[in-house]
Nucleic acid binder design. Structure first.
Length: 424
RNA sequence: GGAGCAGUGGCUGAGCGGCUGAAAGCGACGGUCUUGAAAACCGUUUUACCCAUUGGGUAACGGGGGUUCGAAUCCCUCCUGCUCCGCCA
C-alpha cells in the first residue's frame, strides 16, 4: 500500500507507476474520494467536539438549560448520523482503490511489457555440451523409475506428479541442503502454517489480485499459501518491533499451492509448472531505509546464487522489467537455470524488494529512535530453492550416457550414494 | 462440536455509565548520586489521525453492531484464549 500523502503530493507518479506495471487504476478518482472523506471527517470531528463538550455539562444542568442542551445534542446527532452515513459509503471504495495502487519501481528497472523484455545481467556457470543424445527429465524420471506423472495425475488431476524412491530422496536432498545452507547464513528456520487468513493474503499483497491463483478453503475462509513468503513476511504483522530486533532474517521450507489459472496449455510438459511443490523461501524484514533494502536485496540474491553454485547449476541473473513486476515490487531479480530440454534459461528463483509496500498493508512497524516515531519496516524475499522445478536442470545436466544420473557432491551426504542408476 | 470463564497500555493488573486514554506494580528510557556499576531518589513512557506558530481537537480498553445526551463499563453478535465434556490424527 502506498501512503496517501505521497499520492496527494505527486499523483501522476503513481498513475504512471500503475500504467508501467499494467494495472488500470484511476488515481484521480482515489484523490477525489480522499478529498471528500477528509472533508467529512473534519466536519465530523468538529461535531464530536461540540457533542463532547455539551454532553459533559449535562450533569451540572437542570430545568430549561438541560432541555436546551438536550435539544442541541439531538440536532448534532442528526447531523452526525448523516455524515457517518456518507463516510460509510465512500470509505470502502477508497480502501479498495488504495490497495491497488502500484509501488513505483526503482529508476534502474528496465521498462518493458512482459517477461520477454527482462534484461540479462550476467551468466554464471558453464552450460554442458553433450556428446550423446541427452534425455529430458521426464524420460530420465521414467526410465529411472523416480518420477510418476501419470499416476500423480490419476490421483490429483492435471499438473500433479509423484516422486518415488531416489526421486523423492533427491527432492528432499535439495531442500535439506538448502535448509542447512541458510542456517549457515544465519537465517532463522521457521515451520509455519500454510492456511492463511484473508488479512494475511492482503497484507502481503496477494489479495486483491491473485485470488484466481489461490486455492481457497471456503468452509473455513482460509487460503492455501502459494509460498512461505506469506506466513514469514506476515509473522510479526500488526506489531511494533524494537529497533534492535532488526533485521529479521527468516527462512521456511513449505509446500506451495498454486492454481495456475490462466496458464492452461502453457508449460504442460513435465515438472515445470505444477500445482504443488516444495520450496525453501527466505524473507528479510529490515528498517525503513533504501540503502538497507538494497543491501539485503543483494544479500538474498547472493544466498540463492550460493545454492546454485554449490549445486553446480549454470544460471543467469535477469532484472525483471516493469511489465513483469508485481504490484508491490520495486525491483526484482530472477535467477534462471539452464534447462537443456527447454533449451533456455528458465526461472527458478525470484528475489523481490518491496520497500514498505507490504509492511504498510500489514501494519508492521518498528520504533525508530532517530526519527522518534514508528516507521514501517521494509520487506524482501527470495527463493532459496524450489523443487521439483530445480530437478529439471539437475537431472538433465547430471545425466550420463548410460542413463544414470550423477548426484552433485553437496547432495551425496543426503542421498547416501553418488549415482542414481536404472533398475535392471 | 457442547458447557463455563475470560479478553484493558511493553507485561501484570485495577476500573464496571460522565471526575478514566485509563490506578498501581513491573519493565524500558532519561537524570541525580557513583571512579564505574548496583541500590536509592526524580522524571518520561499507547497509537493513529485532523487543524494550528506555542497549542488545540478526534478516535481507539479483542472486532463489529446496539442502548444512552454520554459506554472500557449495559445489551447483541463474531473472533481469540483458558477450563471441563465429547470426538479424533
Amino acid at each position: 500500500m502506498i501512503d496517501i500523502k505521497l499520492i496527494r503530493e505527486n499523483p501522476q507518479k503513481y498513475q504512471d507507476a500503475c500504467k508501467a506495471k499494467k494495472f488500470d487504476i484511476d488515481i484521480y478518482r482515489l484523490l477525489e474520494l480522499d478529498q471528500q472523506l477528509r472533508f467529512n471527517n473534519e466536519h465530523l470531528q468538529d461535531l464530536l467536539t461540540i457533542k463532547n463538550r455539551v454532553g459533559k455539562s449535562i450533569p451540572t444542568l437542570s430545568g430549561n438549560e438541560l432541555q436546551a442542551a438536550l435539544s442541541e445534542l439531538s440536532l448534532t446527532k442528526k447531523e452526525e448520523t448523516t455524515l457517518q452515513q456518507q463516510i460509510k459509503e465512500l470509505k470502502p471504495e477508497f480502501d479498495a482503490l488504495i490497495l491497488q495502487v502500484a509501488q513505483p519501481t526503482d529508476d534502474d528497472v528496465p521498462v518493458g511489457k512482459d517477461d520477454t523484455e527482462n534484461v540479462e545481467i550476467r551468466r554464471e556457470g558453464k552450460v554442458r555440451q553433450f556428446d550423446f543424445e541427452p534425455k529430458d527429465h521426464v524420460q530420465l524420471g521414467t526410465s529411472l523409475d523416480i518420477i510418476d506423472i501419470e499416476r500423480g495425475v490419476k490421483l490429483a488431476g492435471t499438473r500433479n506428479y509423484i516422486l518415488k524412491g531416489d526421486g523423492a530422496m533427491l527432492h528432499w536432498a535439495v531442500l535439506r541442503f538448502a535448509v542447512d545452507f541458510m542456517v549457515g547464513r544465519g537465517y532463522v528456520p521457521m515451520s509455519v502454517p500454510l492456511l492463511m487468513k484473508d488479512e494475511t493474503m492482503t497484507g502481503t499483497g496477494f489479495f486483491p489480485g491473485s485470488e484466481d491463483q489461490t486455492y481457497r478453503m471456503e468452509a473455513d475462509q482460509l487460503n492455501l499459501a502459494g509460498t512461505a513468503e506469506v506466513p514469514l513476511t506476515a509473522y510479526r504483522m500488526d506489531e511494533i518491533l524494537k529497533t534492535d530486533e532488526l533485521p529479521l532474517k527468516f527462512f521456511a521450507m513449505s509446500s506451495c499451492f498454486r492454481r495456475e489459472a490462466g496458464s492452461a496449455g502453457k508449460d504442460t510438459y513435465g515438472l515445470y509448472r505444477i500445482h504443488q511443490f516444495d520450496k525453501v523461501e527466505q524473507v528479510v524484514i529490515c528498517e525503513n531505509s533504501v540503502e538497507e533494502s538494497n543491501k539485503f536485496h543483494e544479500e538474498i540474491l547472493a544466498n540463492s546464487e550460493g545454492v546454485m553454485a554449490a549445486l553446480g547449476l549454470p544460471y543467469r541473473v535477469v532484472m525483471v522489467c516493469t511489465g513483469d513486476l508485481g504490484r508491490g515490487q520495486a525491483k526484482k531479480y530472477d535467477i534462471e537455470a539452464w534447462m537443456p530440454s527447454r533449451k533456455n534459461y528458465c526461472e527458478t528463483h525470484s528475489a523481490s524488494k518491496f520497500y514498505e509496500f507490504q509492511a504498510r498493508r500489514m501494519n508492521l512497524r518498528y520504533k525508530d529512535p532517530a526519527a522518534k516515531k514508528n516507521l514501517f519496516c521494509h520487506t524482501l524475499n527470495n527463493t532459496v530453492i524450489a523443487s521439483p522445478r530445480v530437478l529439471i536442470p539437475l537431472l538433465e545436466l547430471y545425466q550420463n550416457a548410460d542413463g544414470s544420473v550423477t548426484i552433485p557432491k553437496v547432495l551425496q551426504p543426503y542421498m547416501g550414494k553418488e549415482k542414481i542408476t536404472p533398475r535392471l
